Simulated scan of single mutants.
Amino acid sequence: MTAALTLDGVSKRYGEFRAVEDLSFEVQKGAICGFLGPNGAGKTSTIRMILGLQGVSAGRIEILGADDGRKVRDRIGFLPEERGLYKKMTPVDAIAFFGSLKGLPLAEGRRRAKDMLEAQGLGASRNKKMKELSKGMAQKVQLIASVVHRPEFVILDEPFSGLDPVNQQGLEAVIRDLAADGATVLFSTHVMQHAERLCDKVVLLARGQKAFEGTVTEARATSKRFLELEGAIDAAQAAALPGVSGVEVVSEIDGVRVLKAALGQGGKGQDTLKAAFLGGLDVRRFELREPSLHDAFINLTGDHPDVDQSVKVAEAAR
């Protein structure tokens, strides 16, 4: 397959601080790639370099065959993390205007805007002012505005931020439709569940460096299966069970604990549970669970993806 995007040894420095360091990965044409990591990990800095909005300090970027995103900007759609639409414009006018900036004639932009708003359930709101729309509706309008010119490559920076579950589900459907129509999609997020459902590939970023590149299945395989146990059990008792390689106390209320018991290589949950019951341990609830992408991220980086790293950035920049 041909790569739509290639980063080779890319770094970005702000003074003495390195926001991104020696980052390399590829996104194949037509793929959905999740660019994952905590806030402050370097995702937005990387996206700005891909788009050509800021230069690289070292390394090379190629997008759609060009060495600078600005050379192919009419073939790219971009939804920034910081949203912004003219409040007194109608959705139709706003979408047509943004399309015109990418070379789409206004009349065609208005026609496409009406069709796309209707498809997203916003037909009845197409002539309202933007300031009259809910946050979720306004975000849908901005997404439409970023893809109305039918780009080959779509970049979405934290697209799920601030959306309720219903609108998040709708946005996931839009992303799938974009890929089905042949577009390549790169979206950044710190919410692993979206990537698990959507992505052909993920790139995990922590503290400005790549921690992993591959499929969701490959990422999960880096972490261990585990038993979730609930009862009046202490960590030492659980750690002594056969097949258990480590124990984490998830919560404790009045002596009743929820434990996460990782299973080592070849460990069988059934054997572990059998030993627990035969040993008379107070197991009130149990569940054998496969590792999630969230678990894999913690295993690969030692960080929680929902913990903001920008504080570390501020401290390091002093």
Rank of each mutant, 00 (worst) to 15 (best):
D74N: 15
E82C: 08
V247T: 12
A124E: 15
K312Q: 12
K131M: 12
Q193V: 15
G208A: 07
I76Q: 00
V203H: 05
G55W: 08
T222I: 04
L5H: 09
F226H: 14
V174L: 05
E108R: 12
D295W: 10
F286S: 09
V72M: 04
R176D: 00
F35K: 05
K114T: 14
V27L: 10
S45F: 05
H190E: 02
K135P: 06
F297E: 00
R126P: 00
V313R: 01
L205V: 04
T272M: 06
A41D: 02
F98M: 11
T44F: 05
L122Y: 04
E252Q: 13
A221R: 06
G269W: 11
A183H: 00
A41H: 05
S57T: 14
S310T: 15
G84L: 01
L186D: 00
P105L: 13
L198Y: 05
G136V: 09
S188E: 03
S245A: 11
D271I: 06
F277H: 08
Y14L: 11
E118R: 13
V92D: 02
P91K: 04
K12A: 10
E230Q: 12
D93L: 08
V154M: 00
Q193E: 15
I298P: 00
K312S: 10
A180K: 12
Q54S: 13
E16N: 14
M192N: 02
G103M: 11
Q209S: 15
T90M: 05
L101V: 15
K128M: 09
C33Y: 10
A113P: 07
S188H: 07
A179R: 05
K29M: 07
K312I: 06
G208M: 08
V141I: 10
A124Q: 14
P38F: 05
N127L: 10
T46R: 03
R285P: 01
A238M: 06
E252I: 09
T2D: 09
L259D: 01
D306I: 12
M116A: 02
L198F: 04
V148G: 00
Q193S: 15
R207W: 08
K129D: 06
A3Q: 12
L293P: 01
G9D: 13
I155T: 08
G231R: 09
V249W: 04
A262N: 10
A180I: 02
E252H: 10
T44S: 14
A3R: 11
S310V: 14
P242M: 12
I50G: 01
V174F: 07
A4W: 02
V174N: 01
F212C: 06
H304F: 07
S146I: 01
G266W: 12
G103Q: 13
S310I: 15
V56Q: 04
M1N: 08
A316Y: 11
K128I: 09
A236R: 15
L293I: 04
T222P: 02
Q209C: 14
G162M: 08
L23I: 11
K210L: 11
E248S: 12
A19R: 03
S100K: 05
V191C: 04
H149E: 13
D22V: 11
G9M: 03
G9S: 15
A236K: 15
G246L: 03
